[in-house]
Amino acid sequence: MKAKHKKLLARTGATVLITLILLFVSVPSVVVIMSAFNSTAILSFPPQDLSLRWFERAVTYRDFQRGFINGLIVTAWTSGIALVIGTALAYAIDRFQFRGKDLLETILLSPLVIPHFTIGLGVLMLASQVSMRGSFATVILAQVILVLPFVLRSVYVSLRNLDRRYELAAASLGASPLQVLLRVDLPLLLPGMFGGWLFAAILSFNEFSAALFVTSHATQTLPVAMYTYVREYTDPTMAAISTIFIVTTSITLVLANRFLGLRKVLAIEESK
């Protein structure tokens, strides 16, 4: 009887705790989402009357439209380039012994500890030297540096978990080293590569502090456009665009999970 009570108590406690944590994590988003439906022009909470007018303004506002398109361009290039470079470097670090390997690894992972605005500032100063300030190439360069560690890490972990005996078995069956790479390694690394790419894409699309330095009005991404907007206006358009942001990212993740098995992508050890 006593043990039963204890069990019940523990279960209730755990439920309450988890609920609180979930609330804590989601409260800011919930507040923003709710105020997006406010009919008045003041960014306030809770909303007085419900309306969709701020959503209408958000999607028709020129700078947001431009920022969204720019964001997609930057994200596509950034995640693609980072995927190729990150995979190649992960493979080199896993498979080959060479001088300066540890140093290379440290440098490649350093953007995780260096503030984004430092990297933004650095790239801006370099770009000014060669008169490429505010160009897409500059923005993409800064973003690639930022997201590379995520791709590298993800592919590297997959490589470490790859059983080398698959490669040996393939070789014994007549596969040349290139065929082993294409027909055995690549398919087995795909979940890790996809996971790294997805992280890189989401990060790049949402990235703000480095982008603030390196973008111009013509190349500014959505977060930068939002920042510029919020400095001039304080109406719920911001909340509306944020809501669109949250919903879009969520849908992307749900779809990725549905069709590509995000669970498997993230729980890399399990897939072995």
Binding site: R165, L168, A169, A171, S172, L173, G174, A175, S176, P177, Q179
Partner: peptide, 10 residues
């Protein structure tokens, strides 16, 4: 290995 014509079971 890939030119040896050997069957291998791990």
């Amino acid at each position: 290995p890939h030119q040896r014509d050997i069957g291998l079971v791990f």
